[in-house]
Amino acid sequence: MNKAKYWIGTFLSYIRKDTFRVMITIVIGGFSLLIFAITFQILKNTTHYPERNRSYIFVKGKISKTELKKMTEILKERNIKIYRIITPEYKLRYLYGEKIPEELLKIVPLTIVADGGIGKRVFPAELQKYIEKISSVAPGESKIRKMAGMIRTFLIIFSITLIGGIIVITIFTIQLSFISHHEEIEILKLLGADSIFISVPLFLEGIFIGTGSGLLAVVFFILMKAAWQKYPANLISPDFATMGTTILLGIATGVISSFLSIVSRRHDETG
């Protein structure tokens, strides 16, 4: 028997004794982290939108195939790639994860998203010289940008609130664990155990809950993606960075919760 073996054994016995409470916390944490992961993915997919030299070419009325071909050629000559062509018929109403307002689609039946790469822009005069139907060319549409900004701000605040919520719930679970094992902890104190010796199994419990929540969120995310193959799956499709960040965040919330509950417990006892 050594300390590590004792701590792991104690931690496992705590988990066994409080299985229901721990599992409930993991499920709540899992759902909260899933929302975080979706938010994170959306933010990630939209973050670079204003910085890229993408131009939005808004076209008045219907455009013929010949006109579109001509315009494509001009862009190609200038080494500008067409990233996406958006029309109401195609129902592609998302640009880098941001929804285009219905009103905008009514006024502007066609939008060409052109990617010029760093330092390159689509110049309206040049295009308008050939196609008179072009109403305007903008390096990013301000309305969309403003909306996207608002959505992003809301999502960031919402995510922070959710993470705060997970931490509070985990702290509450660990505090309950303290109460549930009070008798055992008191015996250990009488035997001369310091707070580190007593707290390690509870610290492990917090990390277990956090890691479990993170992993569960990733599993939920993958299942969601599998069940929801089409639109807007592109927007929220989880990548490794998002999955890794979600798991790491789960572990971090577990560590923070354990630390805070142990510190507050010590404060209660000495205060």
């Binding site: 028997m1 050594n2 300390k3 004792y6 250990l188 035997l191 001369g192 155990a193 310091d194 010796f197």
Partner: peptide
Amino acid sequence: IYENVAIPLLIAG
């Protein structure tokens, strides 16, 4: 019983 007696020794390092 073994573990009960061993715990103070573990605590003492």
